[in-house]
Simulated scan of single mutants.
Amino acid sequence: MKRKDKTSNYKPAMDRAKDLKLAIYAIQKGRAQSGETKVTIAAVAREAGVSTALIHNHYPSIAEEIRQIQGRSSRAMRDVKHQDLIAERQKSKGYRQEIEELEAKLAKIASINEVLMDENQKLKTQLRERNVVELVPSSRTDKSRV
């Protein structure tokens, strides 16, 4: 029994890259022999007769090209996420500033409240010491007295 040489199945990297680019082109033009219609890494791998791992591990530029075609470029996604992060940091900064302002207002109001409560207590004490009776307005008025 004659053994098949494993190296006969391997293509040079340049030839394999060309096959992958042709597979992308064929899918884009609707001429894929595998019947693929959407450009994905898995579809390109099937069309070229290779594994998706081969594309990911040995042809990252082609994987990136496929992602760009899909609108999912890692660079574009990174840039979008970076812009989102900057916007969220701005919002967070604004919220922190608003919290500081509100805490300062709250401290001021609490201080005023303490002063008013203290003054109120002093006035009540003075009223008790003078035996002054508080007048409570009645709900009805007696016109016969006027």
Results as ranks from 00 to 15, higher is better:
Ala42Lys: 15
Glu36His: 06
Lys122Tyr: 11
Ala104Phe: 04
Gln70Phe: 08
Asp19Glu: 11
His82Tyr: 13
Thr125Leu: 08
His58Cys: 06
Gln33Cys: 06
Glu101Thr: 07
Lys91Ser: 11
Arg96Gln: 08
Ser73His: 10
Lys124Ile: 04
Ala48Asp: 02
Leu106Met: 12
Arg89Lys: 14
Met1Ser: 13
Arg96Asn: 10
Ser139Gly: 05
Leu22Arg: 11
Gly35Val: 11
Asp15Thr: 12
Arg140Tyr: 06
Ile62Cys: 03
Glu114Pro: 00
Val133Ala: 12
Val132Trp: 07
Gln28Arg: 13
Ile62His: 00
Lys29Glu: 06
Ala43Arg: 08
Ile62Lys: 02
Gln33His: 11
Glu36Met: 07
Met14Cys: 03
Glu103His: 10
Lys4Asn: 05
Glu114Ser: 14
Asp142Thr: 03
Arg3Phe: 04
Glu100Pro: 00
His82Val: 11
Tyr95Phe: 09
Asn131Arg: 08
Ser61Gly: 09
Ser139Cys: 03
Lys108Glu: 15
Glu134Asn: 03
Gln97Pro: 00
Lys21Trp: 01
Lys108Val: 00
Val50Gly: 07
Gln33Met: 07
Asn113Tyr: 07
Glu64Gln: 15
His58Thr: 07
Arg3His: 07
Ala63Phe: 04
Gln90Asn: 11
His56Thr: 14
Ala42Pro: 00
Gly71Gln: 06
Ser61Thr: 09
Ile69Arg: 09
Leu102Asp: 05
Asp84Gln: 15
Glu134Met: 04
Gln68Asn: 15
Glu101Met: 05
Ala87Pro: 00
Glu101Lys: 11
Lys2Glu: 07
Ser8Glu: 13
Tyr25Ser: 05
Lys124Tyr: 01
Ser8Ile: 14
Val133His: 08
Asp118Phe: 12
Ser111Glu: 13
Arg72His: 12
Ala48Pro: 07
Ala110Arg: 15
Val133Lys: 11
Leu127His: 03
Val39Asp: 03
Glu119Cys: 10
Ser92Thr: 13
Asp118Met: 14
Leu102Gln: 09
Ile112His: 13
Leu102Lys: 11
Leu106Lys: 13
Arg67Met: 10
Ser138Gly: 05
Ala13Asn: 04
Lys6Ala: 14
Lys38Pro: 00
Leu54Asp: 02
Ile109Cys: 11
Ile99Glu: 12
Ser51Ile: 03
Asn113Gly: 11
Ser61Trp: 03
Ile62Gln: 04
Gln33Ala: 05
Glu65Gly: 02
Gln83Ala: 15
Arg145Thr: 04
Thr40Phe: 01
Ala107Trp: 00
Ser138Trp: 05
Ala23Tyr: 05
Pro60Val: 06
Ser61Gln: 14
Thr52Phe: 00
Ala48Lys: 02
Ser34Phe: 04
Ala87Phe: 03
Thr37Ser: 06
Asp15Tyr: 01
Asp15Cys: 02
Tyr10Met: 08
Thr37Trp: 02
Val146Met: 04
Ala48Arg: 01
Asp142Cys: 09
Gly49Pro: 09
Ile66Lys: 05
Ser111Ile: 00
Lys143Thr: 10
Asn131Val: 03
Asp15Ile: 09
Arg67Trp: 14
Ser139Asn: 04
